[in-house]
Design a protein around this nucleic acid. Structure first.
Lengths: 231, 231
DNA sequence: CCGGACCTTTACGCGGTCTTGACGGCCGCC
DNA sequence: GGCGGCCGTCAAGACCGCGTAAAGGTCCGG
């Protein structure tokens, strides 16, 4: 949302008629509108930080699901999918890929606007209700919602698995987590006895986060019981 | 929560698609999942003691509010309501009936998981607060929940086996425990006759905890009957 | 097709912990 | 007084958990 409170909508559709109609309609209701006519342009436009994306499936250049996953890498803005298809399989695929709502054409303007409002409301309300403040340790900070680590002011890159492990430890808030618990949570129940992974990844994390990896101050091992995060 | 720390979620929804998606998603995040497709089944499944219930309103057999009140009679586990309705009146009624949170469909997976964690966290914090107070002896204190020993203000390190033995003795609260009893409890039923272990570890414990290990005042042996903890 | 990021797996050294055996004192019993 | 069972003590060796490095292996994007 821009600082004056205006909500920006990115409309992605290859039919100029539809784009024009939506632009007029949305402008009339006080939205700022960006447009893109194909998937590539949509991904570029997403850099401008829209608050919500209206996406037509069936673009000329890219598959719909690919566009969604591509957008998800760039932005967390809600995605409302437009589609002529009634098939519920498409719907599930789109939602699984990261879409937030799905409207089948033809649709009523009122319903469309209501869903748009709902999508925006959900996304802007979320940080207020479930936002968790960054957790601070002496040598680094962990931002659980932004999924970012900072150390001495610079961002530290973690691989997905490393992040999963750190997240589990941090969320436990200082409690000791048994190896079984950590493994099922990070690798899945199948790996409940693969204690070796833990050692390997604990080393990685300590190397990236601890000032002195050999004598950890925050990622501690409780011999015989598991691991613990010390804030 | 099961003994390995896994959290069990009861998912109640009449749409098999949704149930399936949630099951996969929750399993992937280390939860154990139970399911029910209508209100009656939900009430039955609640007997298995889930740690949290995810409840879709709009079930075929019972009204949503009735399901919530019914569940509340059986379990104190937090209830997270799913609903397609945006109406805030429904939300208020559900929350008033005993639900803990309310998520409107469609919802983001991250948000859902965050709310689930929040609900579980709220409900499991309580036992942590009712933690049993440390047991005091003249020369040391035992904190059974933190698994820590202090002597003259400094923490004493115990090995897992030492801790297991001490814990068994302390929890008996002054009663005499037979060697068989102690051995099966600490080492397992296979070791019920390995009385030698007891002697070895009693020595260790006394050396670490007693002011005069040769004349113990708290870890006493009752000749011919077993051992006893004297607070 | 290549290179890189990431995950998985193997190997090894170290230190703490457990197990085991030996020994000596204490006590009741033969 | 000798003897055997029970208990305490010590120390050596086996064993296991943990940390660490590094070699495959897989997948994806250029």
């Amino acid at each position: 949302m821009t600082d004056d409170g205006t909500t920006t909508v990115l409309v992605v559709d290859d039919d100029p008629q539809v784009v024009r109609a939506l632009r007029i309609c949305l402008n009339a209701h006080g939205y700022r509108v960006l447009t893109a006519s194909d998937g590539a342009a949509a991904l570029r436009a997403a850099d401008q930080g829209p608050d919500v994306v209206v996406l037509d499936l069936g673009l000329p250049d890219l598959d719909g699901v690919d566009v969604i996953t591509g957008l998800r890498r760039v932005t967390t803005a809600p995605i409302v999918v437009l589609s002529a298809r009634l098939d519920s399989a498409d719907k599930v695929r789109a939602l699984d890929a990261g879409a937030d709502d799905y409207v089948t054409k033809p649709f009523g303007v009122d319903e469309f606007l209501a869903r748009l409002r709902a999508a925006v409301r959900r996304s802007t309300r979320r940080p207020a209700e479930v936002a968790e403040p960054p957790v601070r340790a002496a040598s680094f900070t962990v931002d659980l919602t932004a999924k970012k680590i900072h150390r001495d002011g610079v961002e530290v890159h973690l691989t997905p698995t490393e992040w999963g492990l750190l997240e589990a430890l941090v969320r436990a808030g200082g409690e000791v987590l048994s190896p079984q618990r950590l493994l099922t949570q990070v690798w899945g129940p199948t790996y409940a006895s693969a204690t070796h992974y833990l050692r390997v990844y604990l080393v990685q994390l300590r190397r990236k986060l601890e000032p002195d990896p050999a004598h950890p101050r925050h990622l501690l091992t409780e011999p015989g019981r598991g691991y613990r995060f010390q804030p």
